[in-house]
């Protein structure tokens, strides 16, 4: 067994008849840092809910470190820690109580739980707030409280459903740092996020869900290598009136002193600058137009949208 999580043909139809998962397959290797991406409503939280015993599956199999969810639910539960998307602690309870109670549900005795809670809360900069009622914490602190709670039983697989939503830049960076260290120490991590930069910088493998289906599941490297062209935004030293017509690069003008240049993957940045110099275009600063992953993400999701509409139009032709 090399996987931390293996999902086979997982389906979920909610009571109202909505099919949130249409038979997904996923495999997350032991020790991996895995990104599960997808637009709002793609089915990420539904899949996570099933893995964590919060949602009943309609069909399919879930296996965690060799334990089948149906046959060995307790073992599966002992191995997973969950940071849910929505705040779900008792807001009237003090921070430390929330963590100690969670430990109790895993059968961890108080004295042991206390030591571990102190360690975790200190790591997550919440120790000063331990006696505060949870409702008095800021949004970012509440997220960190849920991370501490998820780790109290030392899970081998940590699942985080949008842990950085509403978290400021500094805390977000320290959270990334914390998670990276945790991952290096051997914890397998699955993360959903809408900040693709986050996924790109931390995750090794990635799956993209769209409307209840996996549209992509591969390594981050492989995915990024598929990017054919990269678009850069350049701020110019002198205003440019017209783009030279004989230029070998594809250039779009934003305004007189800003241009967007598309650069083929096979070309180097030197080539870009050489070409611009040749046409007397001087560059002050440059940046990526969008995050690289973001470009791919949008393409993949749009591609599956097109496929869906083309299927629909053929089927309507048949019925007509």
């Amino acid at each position: 067994m090399t996987h931390a999580l293996k999902i086979t043909n997982l389906k979920k139809t909610y009571d109202n008849g909505f099919q949130a998962l249409k038979g997904i397959d996923l495999e997350v290797k032991k020790g991996d840092f895995f990104a599960l991406l997808g637009a709002n409503g793609a089915g990420k939280s539904t899949a996570i809910g099933i893995i964590c015993s919060l949602v009943n599956k309609t069909d399919g199999d879930v296996n965690v470190f060799g334990y089948d969810l149906e046959a060995d639910r307790e073992a599966v539960q002992e191995h997973i820690g969950l940071v849910p998307q929505e705040f779900n602690f008792n807001i009237w309870e003090p921070v430390i109580e929330i963590i100690l109670n969670q430990a109790g549900y895993y059968g961890i005795e108080r004295p042991v739980a206390r030591k571990r809670a102190e360690e975790l809360l200190k790591h997550l900069n919440l120790w000063d707030k331990r006696d505060e009622q949870a409702q008095n914490l800021s949004g970012g602190m509440k997220r960190r409280l849920m991370i501490a709670r998820a780790l109290i039983h030392n899970p081998k697989l940590l699942i985080l459903d949008e842990p950085t939503a509403g978290v400021d830049i500094e805390i977000r960076r320290s959270m990334w740092d914390f998670l990276s260290k945790l991952n290096q120490a051997g914890t397998t991590i699955i993360l959903t996020t809408h900040y693709l930069e986050e996924a790109e910088s931390m995750c090794n493998n990635i799956a993209i869900l769209n409307k209840g289906e996996v549209v992509e599941s591969t390594s981050m490297k492989e995915l990024l290598s598929r990017l054919q062209v990269e678009t850069f935004v350049l701020d110019l030293k002198e205003p440019l009136d017209i783009i030279p017509s004989d230029c070998e690069l594809t250039i779009h003008q934003r305004d007189t002193s800003t241009i967007e240049v598309e650069l083929d993957k096979t070309r180097s940045l030197n080539y870009l600058f050489e070409t611009l110099s040749k046409h007397n275009i001087r560059v002050m600063s440059m940046r990526n137009k969008t995050n690289r992953l973001e470009e791919l993400f949008i393409k993949l999701v749009e591609k599956s949208k097109e496929e869906n509409t083309s299927i629909k139009s053929t089927s309507s032709e048949v019925t007509a």
């Binding site: 964590c52 919060l54 779900n88 807001i91």
Partner: peptide, 17 residues
């Protein structure tokens, strides 16, 4: 009912209790 509404019943549902 409060545990259900505010979601902290989930703390028990995800654990092996």
């Amino acid at each position: 009912f409060t545990a259900k509404m505010f979601g902290h019943i989930q703390e028990m549902l995800i654990s092996p209790v």
